[in-house]
Computed example of a mutant assay.
Amino acid sequence: MMNQVLVLGGRGHIGRGVVSDLITHTPAQITITGRTAQAARDLKGYPTERVQFTVLDLADQAGVERAIAASHLVIHCAGPFRYRDDFVLKTCIEQGVHYLDVSDDRNFTRTALGYQNAAQAAGVTAIVNTGVFPGISNSMARQGVEQLDVPEAIHLRYGVAGSGGAGDAVMQTTFLTIQHPFKVWLEGQWQEVKPYTGRELVEFPHPFGRVGVYWFDMPESFTLAETFPVQTVTLKFGTLPDLYNHLTWMVANSFPTAIIRQPGVIQVLSQVSRVMTRISDRFSGTGVALRVEVKGQKAGKLAHYCATFTHPDAATATGMGTGCIAQYILSGELNQPGVWTVEQAYPTSLFEQALQIRGVSIHQCWLQV
């Protein structure tokens, strides 16, 4: 069994979720990176015989190369991925090291998938967009597609309470994502939509209830369309309390584009959001809810499949989604050289087994057509 794991960005909220899952469900020896020695304080509570810290800045390419060479698996958690390049993945392929990331950016995903042939030739299994959404959501979509004889449409709806337990990188990602129109696969063609428009009320399981969701640009909206023979893939996202939805809508649709595209403005918006959610998290919690619907035909009749997933902390759920896949790569049960998205490389049988081990389940049902 391979057991040397390098977690880039392992100090962040998402990275800590990944590390915690690895400690619980694998025998991995884990190296966490941070830009300063002071960051080692965050290792308190981890078993020192299994977790170590090393100072590493991603701008130090020679240092990154050395750290990757000493690993069997690299897990890239250092977002926002809108600002990241392909150096880590490229280096992993060159050195024959398996790779996972928690990326959630369309352009980053496109670039990564372009290394498919190189990774296959190197025998490297690389899976992008692991986590909760994208990640667990992709596996839920595959799970639904496999229930139908002819899948025709996939509808993804996500809800997050407060901050979702996330840090500044995730906050920045939200404000970066709502800056540009993007294309979605509707009725067999690519159509452009504006972010944070098309409000819809969706019923999620308790304790979420009804949540307002909006068009949101995430890579699974195009990877699912390219992976499965469906005519439509829609993806919408929203938050609790609903006040945050309205504030985000204002930023996306009322602020001058030239202003919100400035890095300094993004930083300020993220910091203000962090202050607000520190207060509201006490009341809303930091959970995540996913609702995936797949429509099509089964046994010659119209069918409407629905699956839901909830977790009390979104950052922990993200760590779980990544940790599940890491578990099987380390054990050798998941060995598929190439660069893949979750729905392409991760069998439903392993997905369901991993969640069962963690005491988590997907609620599945058929809705009336």
Rank of each mutant, 00 (worst) to 15 (best):
D104I: 08
D105Q: 10
D105K: 10
R106C: 08
F108R: 05
F108M: 09
T109Y: 08
T109V: 12
T109M: 13
A112W: 07
G114M: 11
Y115M: 08
Y115W: 15
Y115Q: 11
Q116Y: 13
N117T: 15
A118C: 05
A119D: 12
Q120T: 14
A121C: 04
A121M: 09
A121T: 14
G123T: 03
G123N: 02
V124W: 01
T125M: 03
A126E: 08
A126Q: 07
I127D: 04
V128P: 03
N129E: 13
N129H: 03
N129D: 13
T130I: 07
T130E: 04
T130P: 02
G131H: 10
G131W: 08
G131N: 06
G131K: 09
V132L: 09
V132D: 10
F133G: 01
F133Q: 12
P134C: 08
G135E: 03
G135K: 05
S137W: 00
S137F: 01
S137K: 03
S137C: 05
N138V: 01
N138P: 00
N138I: 00
N138S: 15
N138Y: 00
N138R: 00
S139W: 06
S139H: 01
M140E: 09
M140H: 05
A141W: 05
A141V: 07
R142S: 13
R142F: 02
R142Y: 02
G144C: 09
G144L: 07
G144N: 10
V145C: 09
E146W: 04
L148A: 04
D149Y: 00
V150S: 09
V150K: 12
V150L: 12
P151N: 02
I154N: 06
I154G: 01
I154T: 03
H155A: 10
L156V: 14
L156F: 12
L156D: 09
Y158T: 14
Y158I: 15
Y158C: 12
V160I: 15
A161V: 04
G162L: 10
G162D: 10
A166S: 13
A166M: 13
A166L: 12
A169C: 02
M171P: 00
M171V: 01
T173M: 02
T173P: 01
T174S: 02
F175W: 06
F175C: 01
L176V: 02
L176Y: 13
T177Q: 11
I178H: 03
F182C: 04
K183S: 15
K183V: 04
K183F: 06
V184N: 03
W185K: 09
L186K: 13
E187Q: 15
G188A: 04
Q189H: 12
Q189C: 07
Q189R: 13
Q189S: 12
W190Q: 13
W190V: 02
Q191V: 15
Q191C: 07
E192S: 14
V193Y: 05
K194Y: 12
K194N: 11
